[in-house]
Design a protein around this nucleic acid. Structure first.
Lengths: 196, 196, 196, 196
DNA sequence: AATGAATGAGTATTCATTCAT
DNA sequence: GATGAATGAATACTCATTCAT
């Protein structure tokens, strides 16, 4: 899946990141070699190192970009939304459709969530915590709104419903991402909010 | 995490498997070297190969044993149970508590679900399909019982709630496994069965 | 036997080949390790793999180059020769003196004639068949010229006389290669052509 | 090619030797593992070491037995023979037919002629020298008889004709061993003895 | 901005051999 | 006589990375 481009500098790094997403998604970060990535980008091995200082730096960039995009996307979609239920719908919908539209990113994000080490751990950890805090906050708010005390595990269980998709989601057979998002939203809200 | 034991032959293979679970859980299958496993078992590198013909064969054994144990465990727990709702409760409870009691196995099973290749792929694939079929069957049965048409994605979403646990479950902080199982059961049944 | 040279890229692969000839000749292909070759070339282990994709690929290259050189050498030497007896003299002489001048190649070619596997087998097999065909053709032609029916084994026996040299030929003690070539030519022609 | 036997001790060692001949002939001494031999004998790996102290010891035994058998065989066949020409015929015939009847031994003897090391080198070297001396002696005697000065290389060239057979002899296609022996005898005697 | 060439450290695996039983 | 279990040393090969150009 080599990337064509104008060749202008700023695009090359993104091209590498996109190719690497695909390669890491297919083989897994550890099994994929930097040579595989170079082949996919149609660039020399050494050439990659002009743009990224290490293999892990590429993974870092993939994860950072994914989290930042998701956070931006939610920030925009949530602007002006007041109703906590609506907020949750918006966030689930954004998460699920983004994942469905960016399958490789989704795989890499979900599967390699504990792969980064050293200097790379913390910045991604921070993004991840911000992301979880956002969702947990909405869930709590929604509980308060409905007069239900919600377990701190609830949001994590919700993430499970969404993130596990990387193991089974198939655009050709699983239905539309929006349908799945609605489904997950329905299960979660009914399940968490209604008392038996 | 060396294994203590009588050293009698039949135990050695199981000891290797258990140590490997721990090593693979901590470092990931690909990053873990066979040397790491050997060190954990306190056995020589070559000694391992007397029991397992390859690194992948160990992973295979871990996965096979885990699926077989889960299937056996469910078969036993389901014996005599007629009510579909009760069946689901039993299965979720079995799955979640088994995972919580066997954190390493859970991690390896969830994280390395697509790692096996070649001759090892199919037997595990077959076990996995049997397992999914079991849960899907119960979910469908439950839907019929309640007069609700359940999406084929529902069971996969349920697996997400349970399997994603490997990323967040901490025995010291997440509450008892049984509580989590009840929680997931509640979310799922209420969410899936109640019409809005 | 490290290679001296300008170090310019095109020479490196040939340098590796020559060192490997020497190493394989001394220890035998199987007993020689790629480390031995690397040491002989004064290059790192991994460096070799930049030029050759496997140990067998080096052996392949040695054998290919030897057969191609011999075939070229014969083609040139036979140009313009009509007399079958003269042709045979030329070929025997070329084969024996080439072997004597390239003792390592000779050893590797004779000793490792059945060592190559997989993708490497066929191309060398083809060269070998061409070579045998050339000699068999000349022997048959010579027989026809003298009105003698020559057994198909004759050429193989001739190859035996020449190729077995690798077990006994010692430049310091066996006499000149040309003398040996004359000797073999004499034995073969007299022996095969004269009726008792 | 497992060996059946009465199980009585003296036979086991011979059985191992025969199986090893077959294994070494097929894969070459270096590529064949002691495990391959054990499998062929249908004996445990460790069991072999009761009979042979090392892999090389088996090769040694194969070579020793082959040379001793050949020497015995020649001694018997030469008893009472006076005519040098007849002596040579007898020796060539014995060598070639023995090789044809014991293809595996022939391969191992010819191919692994320089494989033995250490304590094993000398005893086999001594047998080899005795064998070469025998043939060289007959050739010289024959030359004297016919009034021809024979080069010391002649016998080595003769060995080449015979020993190279291991690369081409096929019982199904190469004709009878006796015919080949006659052929080699004819080529050698005519070629070496007749003056042009 | 990009690359050919090179390498040190590491990988899974195999091997001949041993030894307690 | 024979074996199951075990091991130290080696093997071919791969990898992320660097550097002179």
């Amino acid at each position: 899946m080599p990337e064509q481009g104008t060749g202008s500098p700023p695009h090359r790094k993104a091209a590498i990141r996109r190719c690497a997403e695909s390669v890491f998604a297919q083989k897994g970060f550890d099994r994929a070699s930097i040579r595989d990535v170079a082949k996919a980008v149609e660039m020399s091995l050494a050439g990659l190192y002009y743009y990224y200082k290490s293999k892990e730096a590429i993974l870092f960039d993939i994860q950072r970009k994914a989290f930042e995009t998701l956070l931006d996307l939610h920030a925009e979609a949530l602007a002006g939304v007041r109703d906590p239920e609506e907020k949750l719908r918006v966030v689930i919908s954004g998460h699920v459709t983004y994942f469905a539209d960016n399958l490789d990113e989704m795989k890499v994000l979900s599967r390699e969530s504990e792969t980064l080490t050293g200097e790379f751990t913390e910045p991604i950890g921070e993004l991840k915590r911000r992301y979880v805090r956002l969702v947990k906050g909405i869930v709590t708010e929604l509980g308060n709104d409905k007069g239900v005390r919600v377990s701190p595990n609830a949001a994590l269980i919700l993430f499970g419903m969404m993130n596990w998709m990387y193991t089974w989601y198939d655009p050709a057979r699983s239905g539309s991402a929006q349908t799945i998002a609605d489904h997950i939203f329905a299960i979660f809200t009914r399940g968490v909010l209604r008392q038996t």
